[in-house]
Structures are given as structure tokens and as C-alpha cells.
Amino acid sequence: MSEERIIAYREALREAMVEEMRTDPTIFLIGEEVAEYNGAYKVSQGMLDEFGAKRVIDTPIAELGFAGISVGAAMNGLRPIVEFMTFNFALLAIDQVVNSAAKVLEMSGGQFNCPIVFRGPSGSAGQLGAQHSQMFENWYANVPGLKVISPSNPYDAKGLLKSAIRDNDPVVFMESEVMYGDKGNVPAGEYIIPIGKGDIKRSGTDVTIVSFNKMMKVALSAAEELAKENISAEVIDLRTIRPLDFPLIVESVKKTNRLVIVEESWPFGSISSEITFQVQKYAFDYLDAPIKRVTGKDVSLGYAPTLVEAYLPNVADTVKAAKSALYLV
């Protein structure tokens, strides 16, 4: 790895797009406020200046329309990057993502593929109320034909976004409003991170904690807390949600015999539900305790700070879940 270079998550994403756009003229960026405003969250800052209005395209507020136009363009030789201002608003476009992008290869008997990236922030970001606080990784991950990525730090974000842009299938790439300013080491040189590979962010022996996106902070802090009590937690960052790296989790559980999953979104039919099924199937005999999870509460998230605090997974609950998997509480 080249020498230390600290940049923000949003800059890492921008570098991935810029580098890929420099080498492949069929790639373009499209979305609300991406060009003249330099991005609602400044991810695309400066890109209009470099690539011009042909390749960095501002849209009206018409998510279904510009997502569909981009899918059509992808079917006909281009490689769009579609920015949704947030994934809450991508719900207006989900028809084209699910019914068109995800299915066109299969429906056309392999003739038309759809090399497209749908990206933007996902999840809660402070006190934004019920309509602006949602996380839909599991919704997209449910759909055959899509790949889903949700990185937790600048390094992973850059390497995975480059892979997503180069991928010949549709990729849903989910970021976080509250992580755009997070800084991390991103080497200056070229690298990519393969889609579908989780990452052990901390090794341990007593309990496995699995998470992704900004909840990785909770998972890693919980591991710190547990370490103070001589409990060694292994922390796995999924990074890619579909295809999910089940073997990595199963191997870890075979070592630790205990599993805690931390997930920001709602519990019903969640990523943690799917992991739980796979682990009970492939590591049943290795489990020394029922699998635990810490998720967002099973409700719509209100505005007040007390509600946000009570809703989101936190370090204390994760520590408690880990200890309960160890029969210590």
C-alpha cells in the first residue's frame, strides 16, 4: 500500500467516479443537484467543471423518470451512475430499479445487460423524521439481478465504488449522510475491492459481531468495550450485502461459537434475519448460544432526540447482546 493519505468518505467516492470517468467515456453521472450545485452533499464537487454538462447531468425532481432514462441508456451502451439525493427518494424510482434494471438481462435471454450504479445516502442522519431516516439495503438485496453494496469507511467506499462502476450488472450502492465527512486512509494508487467479500475489521475469539455501513462504528466501539472486560470480539464488516459473504461469517462463528448482528434498519425480514438463517443452517453445531441482534426499533422514526436515541442500535445494547451470547448477563 502506498503511503498514508487521509481523505473524507465523500472525496473517496468522488475519486472513484472521477478516475473511472477519465478512463471510460461512456460513464456519466446523473441526479438532482449533482452538477451546478456540486452535489447536495458535495460528493460530486468539481465534477461538472472537469467533465462538462454532457457527463454530469442535473435532473428535475423526477426520480422515476431519470432512473428509467438511465436504465434505457445502460441497455444501449452507456454506463450511468445515478445519484439519488437519498434512498428515501429512490422509493419513487424503485419500479425501474426492480422491474427494469434487475430483470432486463433475464427477460431478454441474456441479450441486454444493464451496467448501472444507483448510489446515494441511506439511513438516518440525525433528527430528520420518519420519511428521511430509512435504510433499504434489505429491500434491494431481496431482488435477484441486483448487487448491493454498503461501505463503512473511505477506503472501502472508493475500492467498492470502482468495482461497482466496472461491474456489468446493476449495483445499488448505499452510503451515509453522516459518514460523508469521515476521514480515513486511502492510498493514492489504483486499487479495487471485489464485490461480495466481507472484511474482518477486528479479529477475536469469543464472539463474532457482524455489521455494515455506519453501524460498524457501534460494532467496533462495542468490541473496544468488551475488550476492557477481556472479551475478545471479532468484528466483520459485510461491505457487500448482495451477494453476501456468508462463508466468512460461518468461518468466524465456527471459531467464536457466538454471533451478534448489528443493523440500523427494522428487524422484520432484515439482513440479520437472512444471516441468521444461513448460520443456523451451516454452523448449527458450532453455535453455543442463540444468535443475537441489535436493530433499529420496529417503528417509524420520529423527530425528537429522545426518539432517535431510543430507536438506533447503540454500544451498550451491543455489549449487552454479546455478553448475553456469552451467558454473562
Binding site: L92, G129, H132, G302, Y303, A304, L307
Partner: peptide, 25 residues
């Protein structure tokens, strides 16, 4: 709205105000 909606989601059934909605359109 009991602190649940905040600035974007004011509502009052009593006053025939059907709200403050956050998804454009």
C-alpha cells in the same frame, strides 16, 4: 405532533391541516 414530526411534518386534524410532507410531490 408530539415531537414526532418536527418542522417538516406539522399536522392538525382539528384545524383541517393534512400536513407537512417530506417527499417532493
Amino acid at each position: 405532533t408530539k415531537g414526532k414530526g418536527g418542522s417538516m411534518h406539522l399536522f392538525s386534524k382539528e384545524h383541517n391541516f393534512f400536513g407537512g410532507h417530506g417527499i417532493v410531490g
